[in-house]
Amino acid sequence: MTEGKVRRVWSDEELDLALATLYADVDTDERRLRETRTGLVGERQETRDTRESRGTRGVRRGRQGQRGRRSWILAAAAVTALVAGLGMVQMIISARPGPPPDPGQPGAAARALEAAADRVVASAPVISPGQYRYGATQTWDRSDWPGPTRELSMRTESRTESWIPGDLAGECLLRIMVTGRYEWIVGTDEEALGTAMGRPEASNHEDRRPCPEFREVENWWMPRPAWLAGLPRDPDQLEEVLPEFNGGDLGTFEPNREWRMLDHACVVLATGQVPADLRAALYRVLARLPGVQITDPAANLDGRSGVGYGLIRGDVRRELIIEPGTGDLIGVRETRGGTVWSSTALTTGVAPGIGVRPPG
């Protein structure tokens, strides 16, 4: 929220720095800058004293009074230009990506998540008629199952693409692709023969229908677009809804409320279908979690760099990876015992039509 925001007063040092940035080719000697600033303020005070004396002594009209009035007009114009220029510099400086958050600073993760939410809101794209909110995911998920002589463990790849219109009365499209790619963590192809899992086979599935009919269930794992649209954007209200068990936990229930909130936020964001305003609200809720921390100040996921934010419990780390300059969500990741258990990399954008990928 921006209501009630307090504007910070610039110090003398910041003012001089801004002047130097605005007018790099002008003499910015510190002593002369202070003299100029003092002169402008003094001129304003002198003019105020003159106005106050008019009621008792009158004002001598003529060339001297005109000079004083002209000087004040010029001084006021200079002050106005200076303030406008400083405001421009402050806007430019505020718009630049800030430095990476310092994991050692208390509350660094909460402040960085709030800042990321602000950037998401400021840069949220407008979905015009005929356009679609596009989301693409690449997920590597781990599975474990008993083998002939030991527990087998494998990571498999799947991809999704979704197109959701701004008007949810239109059509939605979801493509799900099991790529057939996999990597063994523990085990071999020979060991998997005749077991419950075996090697994954490539497959494709497409679901295209009116958005109100899209998907039969409503939960954090498989959210209907209309269900996402109905979730509260107010962080206080969203904080009450986020930990709710809604049937999507696949037979498991996490008893820790904070961990459950993070888990639900991660899985719904990992669908790639969450609109910008809801993503910002989720960031703000996660910023309030007790124990939230910068889990990886230099995270890399699918070749993109960001900062990891989340919770650590024992040897398990659950995190969102956010690009600090834009607030874009790069993906989510879970690590157990130093090994990546699952990860999802995201790409989002605005598509010119259903089934058409965004340009670029």
Rank of each mutant, 00 (worst) to 15 (best):
M1L: 09
R7H: 12
W10C: 01
D25Q: 10
V26H: 09
R34T: 06
L40W: 14
E46K: 04
E52A: 11
E52L: 04
T56S: 01
R57G: 02
G62Y: 04
R63G: 01
Q64L: 00
Q66M: 01
I73N: 02
A78C: 04
T80W: 07
A95V: 00
A95W: 02
A95M: 11
P99Y: 03
P106L: 12
G107N: 12
L113A: 09
A117M: 03
W145R: 07
R155L: 13
T156V: 12
W163L: 08
D167R: 05
D167E: 11
L168Q: 05
A169R: 14
V178N: 08
A192C: 05
M197N: 02
M197D: 11
M197L: 15
G198D: 14
G198M: 10
A202K: 10
E213M: 11
R215Q: 14
E218V: 08
R224S: 15
L231Y: 09
L231S: 14
D236A: 15
Q237E: 15
F245T: 04
N246H: 06
G248P: 04
L250R: 08
E254G: 00
E254F: 02
E254Q: 10
L262I: 01
D263C: 04
D263I: 04
H264A: 09
C266A: 14
D277I: 01
L282V: 07
L286Y: 01
L289E: 02
P290K: 02
I294A: 00
T295A: 12
S305A: 15
G310S: 08
G314N: 11
D328E: 15
V340C: 10
T344F: 04
L346C: 09
P359F: 03
G360P: 03
G360E: 13
